[in-house]
């Protein structure tokens, strides 16, 4: 749709700008301020320029956490997006069961993130948890997420798939419902295969909601904190210490405000870069 050029439209955007800027700009400036100073205590600070940025960028542990984080987010997207699309396609389109399915789908999304971790601690425990007990006894696989790094990793990943796939399903389902019946009728007259219907009708029509889903899932998985923190505490060893837990240790545990601020800004820029790439890629593919 061609839009009308009209700069007065800014007047309609001002409330949003004010309300978001109130919480966004001053804290961001403060963090930038921390990142270029060495802070000894109240009133005692020295300007040190890019020192912290160099230190943070060269930190080996941070590189490990970054790779771990990238792998995690990549797996999350590779599992949750296709699974979400498949479930959305399989859901019934009419009848009483639709409401029931939608309500069940929303349930995991509504649990506070720390509580999700607590529930999975017990759920996955090998002695008293349903999942842990089943895997150990019925499938006779030796599984213990508190001592085995690989098990801990898989548990965090499955927990995230459990928690967030419904978001992708809800968005995709909504996108699919927006396709008029006439499209499907035309396709069946042409004798289009199921795959052709998906590729040339459903997928393009889901573009907008998929952009939202991919970006939301990328940002939130890249910033994941509460769930693995509660479930595994980052361990065993450092195997599930993702970036934001590493950052929190630095900022609160050791109270290294300067390096932590520098790290935050680098972290923010990484998220920004990837989000921009996804955003541009999805917008371009469709044109």
């Amino acid at each position: 749709m061609n839009k009308i050029q009209n700069n007065k439209a800014w007047l309609l955007v001002i409330p949003v700008f004010v309300i978001v800027a109130f919480s966004a700009i001053i804290p961001l400036m403060t963090v930038v301020n921390y990142s270029v100073q060495d802070i000894f205590g109240p009133g005692q600070r020295v300007f040190i320029g890019t020192e912290w940025f160099k230190e943070v960028l060269l930190d080996e542990r941070l590189h490990d956490a970054l790779w771990r984080q990238l792998l995690f987010s990549a797996l999350v997207l590779l599992i949750e997006i296709p699974l979400g699309i498949l479930i959305a396609l399989a859901l019934p389109t009419r009848g009483w069961s639709v409401s029931l399915f939608l309500i069940i789908l929303a349930l995991p999304l509504l649990i506070p993130w720390n509580v999700i971790g607590f529930i999975w601690i017990v759920f996955a425990r090998p002695d008293i948890g349903l999942a842990g007990k089943t895997i150990n006894d019925l499938l006779s696989i030796d599984y213990n997420f508190t001592s085995n790094a690989f098990d801990a990793w898989i548990t965090v990943l499955i927990m995230d798939v459990w928690h967030w796939t419904p978001l992708v399903v809800l968005l995709c389902y909504a996108g699919l419902r927006a396709i008029p019946d006439a499209y499907y009728q035309a396709a069946s007259i042409d004798g289009a295969s199921k795959w052709a219907v998906f590729r040339y009708i459903q997928l393009p029509k889901m573009r907008e909601v998929l952009t939202i889903a991919v970006l939301l899932r990328f940002m939130d998985s890249f910033l994941i904190y509460a769930e693995p923190f509660v479930l595994t505490g980052g361990g065993p060893g450092n195997s599930t210490t993702f970036l934001s837990q590493f950052l929190t240790k630095m900022a609160i545990g050791q109270f290294d405000l300067g390096p932590a601020a520098a790290f935050s800004l680098i972290y923010f820029l990484i998220v920004l870069l990837f989000s921009w790439l996804f955003y541009t890629a999805i917008t371009h593919i469709s044109q």
Partner: peptide
């Protein structure tokens, strides 16, 4: 409905506010 100066930048800037890692921002907040 409208295109106006800086609309695309404004739109993406709004989204960037979801991207900041919270830990260090809590203190200035």
């Amino acid at each position: 409905r409208y295109s106006f100066i800086g609309d695309k930048h404004m739109f993406f800037w709004l989204l960037t506010n979801r991207m900041a890692p919270p830990a260090v921002f809590l203190l200035p907040f």
